[in-house]
Design a protein around this nucleic acid. Sequence first.
DNA 1: CATGGGATTGACT
DNA 2: GTCAATCCCATGC
Length: 195
Amino acid sequence: MTAAPCGLDYSRSVLELAVDLLGATVRHGACAGRIVETEAYHDSEAACHAHVGLTPRTHVLFGPPGRAYVYRSYGIHALLNAVAEPEGVGAAVLIRALEPLDGIGEMQARRRRERPEELCSGPGKLTQALGIDLAQNATDLATGPVRIEPRTGFAPDHLAAPRVGITKAAELPWRFCERGSRFVSRPWPPGLRGG
DNA sequence: CATGGGATTGACT
DNA sequence: GTCAATCCCATGC
């Protein structure tokens, strides 16, 4: 038996952090959800924004671990990441899906959807549901407006698979989902389901 | 300064 | 299955 972790170490390997964030809670205002899907990004591979080096956009990624990296995707959506690894390394974990916990009425109003499965089952959906936008970029995830509370107890059983929606470094299995969750952004390929 | 490309989503055929 | 919405920012001239 290993001891249950009592905190999150954002400075560790982005792959380890991506798994460790499964089961953690994201909270913003009155809304909160349990992380059921993550993806890892690292400056050593081409899908990561930090791959181009230090620019105004990637400044946060290369900064201290444990901060939020929020950026606009396709001109429409805000996507939430947790910066990982020591300062000087550009790496982050993309939060891709949550299981809604608190403030569900508020999430339903923002999303204009009723079903819990449609509130946070995607990286753009969960930021809309929780009211997270670019104003929260670079804020501290332990003390800032957007907080991540470590899970209590053991890590959920999970599956690894290739990341979604990228064209570069698409072969790396750096997507992690809680096994059996109905709140993930999209179903697993046939044959992998239930693992 | 002009251009092009997205770590997406929802509506539609 | 296809496709448009819409904006930040990296890149190139």
